[in-house]
Computed example of a mutant assay.
Amino acid sequence: METYNQTSNDFILIGLFSPLGTGLFLFIFIVLILLMALFGNLSMILLIFLDTHLHTPMYFLLSQLSFIDLNYVSTIVPKMAFNFLFGNKSISFIGCGIQSFFFLTLAVVEALLLTSMAYDRYVAICFPLHYPIRISKRVCVLMITGSWIMGSIKSFHTAYALHFPFCGSRAIDHFFCEVPAMLVLSCVDTTHYERTAYASGVIFLFIPSSLIFASYVQILLTVLQMKSKEARKKSFSTCFFHMIVVIMYYLPFIFTYMRPKKYHTPGQDKFIRNKDVLDAMKNMLRSSFLHKMLQVKSLKYILLSIFIINI
């Protein structure tokens, strides 16, 4: 890794691409894929908004996930692209804090929305007669609003992380400002902060993921008791794709945020936490429209092999 001394309050983002021709090719290819992902998510949001048949809690939650995807790209990609194109890898202290805050907010909101979607499917399959009461529009709005509020509150701890003194190098071996990658640069003991972050991870990662898996165990038992093969197939299709999304979302976050600082090796989180790769199977639910949109979104999986080669 290149050596960057502490000459200002700015941080340096090492980035994801090499300055050579291969890096430029990968950059262009990834930008094209991300533009397609942007188009796919925006199209999904507009279609759900315009089609009254899709004005249901499930699709409302789905549109929120697509909205989060759009914000992820807006938070990370512009700065990453600017740094690569103009060779300026610096990011201001305040800019780094803002980027970290919004990224973590979106991450927590998505975690809670995935939990809400699991509850939606649990009620729809296990208690179909109670669904209009348990998952009303009011309840759906409350779940979404609560997710955003909790996400914003959770993300305020990034301000505390920025108060740590950063001695010597201020080069973050990442393509955006993420707290675990920043803690590695701190020259003081961050054990207390890490314990707090670990407890926060238990609350916002481990507990929601446990609730999701518990709900899907119950869903699976209910589906197996269905007499209609078509109903079983439809239910399995919905739950299977949702579980893939949950696994691909929670495992990398748990791996990144619930490890001590000493176990964070250079470049490791840069690969693990590439959000645009890990979100490739987002919004894979039961309608034919969603499966068609998936053909666009799944193209982001191509990035996975590229990052493996590049890191």
Rank of each mutant, 00 (worst) to 15 (best):
G21A: 15
I153H: 06
A214Q: 13
F93Q: 07
N41I: 05
S43H: 01
L211M: 13
P208D: 01
M258E: 04
T75W: 06
I133H: 14
L112W: 00
S43R: 00
T75C: 11
V123H: 02
D276N: 10
S147A: 15
I98F: 06
I14S: 11
I91A: 02
L20W: 10
K137R: 15
M1E: 06
Y249P: 04
T158A: 04
F289V: 05
L221D: 07
D69Y: 12
S200D: 15
Y131E: 04
I153L: 14
F103L: 07
S210E: 01
S66V: 09
I45H: 00
M150T: 11
I149E: 01
I254A: 07
T22A: 08
G95Q: 05
N274V: 08
T238N: 07
I247V: 13
M80Q: 08
M284I: 09
T190Y: 03
F49H: 05
D10R: 00
P180N: 06
S100T: 04
D189V: 05
F60A: 08
K297A: 05
L220F: 14
I125A: 03
I254N: 04
S209A: 15
M226S: 06
A171D: 09
I212A: 00
P128N: 02
F86W: 07
A280P: 07
M143H: 15
M293H: 03
Y216P: 01
Q64V: 03
F11H: 03
P260V: 04
L47M: 11
F176H: 09
Y122P: 00
G201H: 12
I309D: 03
P57M: 03
F27Y: 12
I133C: 06
K234C: 03
T222G: 12
F175H: 13
L42E: 05
A107R: 14
I76D: 00
N310G: 05
K229C: 06
L62P: 01
A280V: 14
K261V: 11
F164G: 03
L50E: 01
I14T: 13
C167V: 04
V108S: 02
G201C: 09
E230M: 13
V296Y: 08
A124R: 12
S18Q: 14
N9H: 07
F39W: 05
Y257C: 02
F17G: 07
I76M: 03
M1Y: 07
I45Q: 00
L13T: 04
G146A: 06
H53K: 09
F206R: 08
T196Y: 15
L303I: 15
E194W: 09
L220V: 05
T7H: 14
P57R: 08
I311L: 12
T75M: 04
H192E: 15
Q64P: 00
F25M: 08
P57Y: 07
Y72V: 05
I212N: 02
C140R: 10
W148E: 02
L70P: 00
H242F: 14
N71H: 09
V296E: 12
L50I: 01
K234R: 13
I94H: 04
C96H: 01
